[in-house]
């Protein structure tokens, strides 16, 4: 059973098609990346998944079926538009929002206390939320997202406004939740965070799915047009099937012509008797894939 199954959802606001026949599935126990540039339709997709918006067409299954009140208690959500009650104390605010997720009063109080201690907020519990720093409020948001021990966590831009120490803490926390079997959907445009954390991803642009699958598969899919070569001596100026040769530190990057495979280049270099220290098919970074996909506007069927 998938944690989330999105099937051909579409949503239009006025003249703008925010989401256009988007489909993907999120498996239990994985960190799934929902990527896309600003305004791509990520947040709208999440709001449809969470039943805040109704889609114009298509359907969503969450934790094995339609959204129910019971399921809302099993979902932790950190929205992009962060917010807390400003005029009440941190402790009251966290307790109220925890209890809205179905926790009993004593249970909520114990969990909130435990998490405030973990996030170094315990000493600030009697302060009004508006007196806390932005980073502290961000940590309080994360407590609200995780306090009820949800099965499914959906977080929109989890690292914004966090310093490197807290960013690392959140990363550790997300991995820890995944290891406990929780499903995590991470919505971001910070590609290096996705590369570090996500198992699979979907990339949306202009409301459409551009890329979808395992991170390693996607990188492999976009590889093959460049190879990294470290020869013992110099390379010949011309190599058949290579359109351009760039120097890269102690080696070379060979840009392959269309229809040329890395295997053909390797065969050619070996036949020419050029001694090699290293020969590697260059895997593009997610950043490069992202830019390539977003600028070419190709669509995945």
């Amino acid at each position: 059973m998938s944690s989330i199954k999105v099937n051909q959802i579409s949503k239009r606001f006025g003249n703008q098609q925010a989401v256009d026949r988007v489909s993907f599935e999120v498996e239990p126990g994985e960190i799934f990346g929902l990527l896309g540039p600003n305004g791509a339709g990520k947040t709208t997709s999440i709001r449809i998944i969470l039943d805040i918006f109704k889609p114009d067409s298509g359907e969503v299954e969450i934790l094995g079926g339609k959204m129910t009140d019971e399921k809302k208690n099993q979902i932790g959500y950190l929205p992009e538009e962060r917010g807390l009650y400003q005029d009440i104390t941190l402790e009251v605010c966290l307790n109220y929002l925890a209890r809205l997720k179905g926790l009993k009063p004593a249970e909520a109080a114990a969990r909130v206390e435990q998490m405030m201690k973990r996030f170094d907020l315990y000493d600030h519990r009697k302060k009004k939320v508006k007196e806390l720093s932005k980073g502290m409020q961000q940590k309080a948001q994360l407590i609200i997202t995780l306090v009820h021990d949800p099965q499914l966590v959906i977080i929109d831009e989890p690292f914004s406004a966090l310093d490197p120490v807290n960013t690392q803490m959140v990363k550790d926390l997300l991995r820890e939740e995944r290891d406990k079997g929780k499903t995590i959907v991470m919505c971001t445009h910070q590609m290096h965070q996705v590369e570090e954390l996500c198992d699979r991803l979907v990339l949306i642009n202009h409301g459409k799915v551009m890329l979808y699958g395992k991170l390693s598969d996607i990188r492999r899919q976009y590889s093959g047009q460049e190879v990294i070569v470290h020869p013992l001596n110099e390379l010949p100026a011309q190599i058949p099937g290579v359109s351009r040769i760039d120097r890269d530190n102690s080696g070379y990057i060979l840009h392959l012509a269309d229809q040329t495979t890395p295997q053909a280049i390797l065969k050619n270099l070996v036949e020419q008797g050029i001694p090699l220290e290293r020969f590697e098919v260059a895997l593009p970074t997610l950043d490069e894939i992202f830019i390539q996909v977003v600028t070419s506007r190709g669509e995945v069927s």
Partner: peptide, 16 residues
């Protein structure tokens, strides 16, 4: 105020 504080979205995922 809840809208300006942006608490509404969290509330909407907890209660109907």
């Amino acid at each position: 105020t809840e809208k300006q504080n942006r608490v509404m979205e969290i509330l909407l995922t907890s209660v109907t």
